[in-house]
Simulated assay, not measured.
Amino acid sequence: MVTRHNLLVTTCLLALTVVSRSYAAPNGRIVGGADAAIGQFPHQVSLQRDDGSHTCGGSIISENFVITAAHCVVVGNGIEPYPARYYQVRVGSIQRTLGGLLLKLKRIIVHKGYGNFLNDIALLELEKPLVFTENIQPIELAEEEVPSGEDVIISGWGRLSTSGPIPNRMQWNTLKALNTEECEEAIQMGDDSLICLAHNPDNGACFGDSGGPATYNGKLVGLSNFVYDGCGSANPDGYTKVAYADHREWIRENSGV
């Protein structure tokens, strides 16, 4: 079982809850990452506030839906989302401030079981269906577990370090999958609905990567959820597991994917 008696002290959520404005998160870049190439991650989106500032990542899963983390869009610690009009997504660009298309949201759907780092999933229904191009493509959702020790790719605009600079160009990095028992041993978060991704110090996810994709064999296996002991620590990062049966069923019921 997962033990969390000290988690709020030792864990740093990717979307800060103590921001000056009333909604969402900070900006950023993946720790230790490399520049993404044009078209390398056509499923990746930048979830932005209505003022154009990047707040989280996300992935296109159909012409009508983007998937991201619940904590990117909920009010406080609850499960009620902010109004869809507060957000937009940039698709088809590796730059968070230009290129591609900016799209409005029609609706935000949050998993009703979200809380205590679990079921951290939300669906963003687009105001108008996407037209797929070379740089705008959906990603297939994983149905199977990632074997321990396999390479998993993460991407996004998370910070270089906990208080580091914010690049305009998308970053990516390669982490290692851990199984449930290994995750429990490392950070006491061995829940079947999570996937932990190990990395060397000065690598991994950071603020602004929330909700962004972790992929294995070209399929979406995880959504960036939390980091432990700050960005780029020696501890693995936590991702919401897409292949978890309850998560896949919830996604199907709410998006048809």
Rank of each mutant, 00 (worst) to 15 (best):
C183E: 01
C183H: 03
E184V: 02
E184T: 04
E184N: 14
E185D: 04
E185N: 13
E185F: 04
E185M: 06
A186S: 15
A186V: 02
A186G: 06
I187R: 04
I187C: 01
I187Y: 02
Q188V: 09
Q188R: 12
Q188L: 09
Q188G: 00
M189P: 00
M189A: 13
G190S: 03
D191E: 09
D191T: 02
D192V: 12
S193M: 10
S193T: 06
S193F: 00
L194N: 05
L194V: 07
I195V: 15
I195N: 01
I195C: 01
I195P: 00
C196N: 00
L197T: 06
L197N: 01
L197K: 03
L197Y: 00
A198Y: 10
H199L: 07
H199P: 11
N200K: 15
N200C: 01
N200M: 15
P201C: 05
D202Y: 12
D202I: 05
N203C: 11
N203D: 11
N203H: 12
N203M: 15
G204D: 02
G204I: 10
G204F: 09
G204H: 07
A205M: 15
A205N: 11
C206Q: 10
C206W: 04
F207G: 14
F207W: 09
G208Q: 00
D209W: 06
D209F: 13
D209V: 14
S210Q: 14
S210M: 13
S210L: 08
S210C: 13
G211A: 12
G211I: 05
G212A: 06
G212F: 04
G212W: 03
P213K: 04
P213A: 11
P213Q: 03
A214Y: 05
T215D: 14
Y216T: 02
Y216A: 06
N217T: 05
N217G: 13
G218E: 12
G218L: 14
G218A: 11
G218K: 08
K219C: 03
L220G: 01
L220E: 01
L220K: 07
L220I: 06
V221M: 02
G222V: 08
G222S: 12
L223E: 08
L223D: 07
L223Q: 00
L223F: 01
S224R: 02
S224T: 15
N225R: 03
N225G: 12
F226I: 13
F226Q: 07
Y228P: 02
Y228L: 00
D229S: 10
G230D: 10
C231V: 13
C231I: 11
C231W: 03
G232D: 06
A234K: 11
A234I: 09
A234M: 03
N235Q: 11
N235M: 04
N235R: 12
P236M: 07
D237H: 09
G238N: 01
G238E: 05
Y239F: 15
Y239L: 00
T240Q: 14
T240M: 10
T240D: 06
K241T: 08
V242P: 05
A243R: 11
A243D: 13
D246M: 10
H247F: 08
R248C: 04
I251F: 07
I251C: 14
I251R: 02
I251V: 15
R252C: 04
R252I: 14
R252L: 07
R252S: 09
E253D: 13
E253Y: 04
